[in-house]
Design a binder for these strands. Sequence first.
DNA 1: CTGAAAGCGCTTACAG
DNA 2: CTGAAAGCGCTTACAG
Lengths: 332, 332
Amino acid sequence: MTIRELAKLTNTSYSTVSRALNDNPKVARETKERIKNVAEQAGYQINASAQSLATGIHRTIGILYPYHSLRAVESIYTVNLMQMLRGELAIQGFDTLIQGYDTIGEDVFHLTRLVRQKKVDALLIIGYEITEEAVIEVAKYTDKFILINPIHDAWVERYDRIMIDHHYGGELAAEVLVAKGRKTLIAIAENSPQFQERIKGFTTIVHIYPGISFSRLVLPSGTFSGAYKFVESHLEELQEADGLFIQSDNSAFGVMNGLLDHGVKIPYDISIVGYDDVDWCDYSRPALSTIHQPKTNVVEAAAQTITSWVLHGKNGSFRGTFKPSFIERKSC
Amino acid sequence: MTIRELAKLTNTSYSTVSRALNDNPKVARETKERIKNVAEQAGYQINASAQSLATGIHRTIGILYPYHSLRAVESIYTVNLMQMLRGELAIQGFDTLIQGYDTIGEDVFHLTRLVRQKKVDALLIIGYEITEEAVIEVAKYTDKFILINPIHDAWVERYDRIMIDHHYGGELAAEVLVAKGRKTLIAIAENSPQFQERIKGFTTIVHIYPGISFSRLVLPSGTFSGAYKFVESHLEELQEADGLFIQSDNSAFGVMNGLLDHGVKIPYDISIVGYDDVDWCDYSRPALSTIHQPKTNVVEAAAQTITSWVLHGKNGSFRGTFKPSFIERKSC
DNA sequence: CTGAAAGCGCTTACAG
DNA sequence: CTGAAAGCGCTTACAG
């Protein structure tokens, strides 16, 4: 079923059919309705390839995500984010083409392939793993892309991006631990740029209050088992602390289980605050108090902005920042 | 950059350029190489819409997944499956368009939209939630679709599908519990068709051995908290049992935590076997012994079959069944 | 308000 | 082995 056949069925030209279907105001209302009815009856569906070729618009957004982040349970946050983005884009009438990218030895070609082959109109790039070189490459082919949750760095500010105020997240964690009367605090994270802002925020607050001792410990691996093993090699230091800020829930679960296995009582002996607010926070024992990263705001802003660029052209630039919040459970 | 420009750069016609780029054997080797080099230099990328329109092939597969299964932590299995499918399809040179479908009040239009609009060549439909009516509707528009992990039911066998032998999975669980010397067994699951085969398999084995008492309990909700609450309302029955077969890991975590909170020792007092083998099985205390659902085989078979259908036409039908296996951890 | 025509960027049967 | 031409199914400037 094509518009030509539809034209025959309705005794019009296919130009008129095309206009009617696109709600062109120049078509007489009566003609338009007649055509639309017949199209509906006939079960007509537009051929997206032909429309794309003619208009240059594909009504499809590419989502690029870091492979790395989807290997295991770590994935939950990213996966939820992607599902929500897909849902929001669908509401705007767009389809979603998903593509992974690799951090190491990143083949830049693949980042831009969807745009260059005209399979998508624009790109949503997820994750702190994207590098400046990669973004520069993307920018050669399109200006319609948004970085979602990139690291906090100067170069990022030259591009459209939407991110979470991790400095504030760190501040929140410190405020909570101090409010609980904790005096010997340790911030624990992998040695990765994404955690620096959280630590900075945390430190800022800690320094305001007198009588608080504070140190940092670096996690060799942020996985559950990496964090678990970490406890065994740092047991003494950890046992002397009474407040822990562990910068991903996943690591927090590992540390928490490690401590529990060594007889440490949580939150009696030590308070723990995680980061992310994944679903499992409710299920761990004790349930994990954590810093919640807002997703709904991020998703809506990203989806609505990018689809508007596609449909109406990109007029200005876009910078969005959302604040995290503290979720109290049982671990502190 | 189009093939016309490429034709000028190489002093040939654009027909020849097209043939060269498609490795048409009729083009002289020397000409072909020259054109390919120039194309490479110029950074030429084919316009996918134009190619699709001309050939009718889009090199894109639609993956339909049940929204429902991606709400929370339950998602892990499905999400991993989708990521793996995407990866395997990418290896075959196909892109992936992802679309959710809803179980309740399922709008069938959306299931077939991608095919009807010619955005994808074929469909991979994930999940036991797909209904016969929905599949009948899909079949009206294409014969190129594969059901992945549908429920075990007669109608399913009329379509191409790939699934896991859950009857065997249930048998495995029973064998394990019996081998541990457990005598009072309870199988626990939601009241949903997907679990019936597991129960059947379990029952088959239980009946072989003398002196085993066996009962079934229905879970009102398969979520962690649903399963947790379930323990409180069925504490007596559960305390009398010494072996539990809980038919999703997720529910198993809830039941396990509920029992632990009531002083039940696992696996000392009672053995627990879950189902799925999600990542969290390693992290729970005790780590959860479970039935592993194979994913690699499923993914490879599905992706390779569907892309072959698109590229070379669908010749026959496809039925694949893979066996699960038992993974021993600490809960039994 | 409607139609005929050109064009989007490819592929491929037909001729040579 | 290569080129000219028709066609895939739409949109839209141009005429009327």
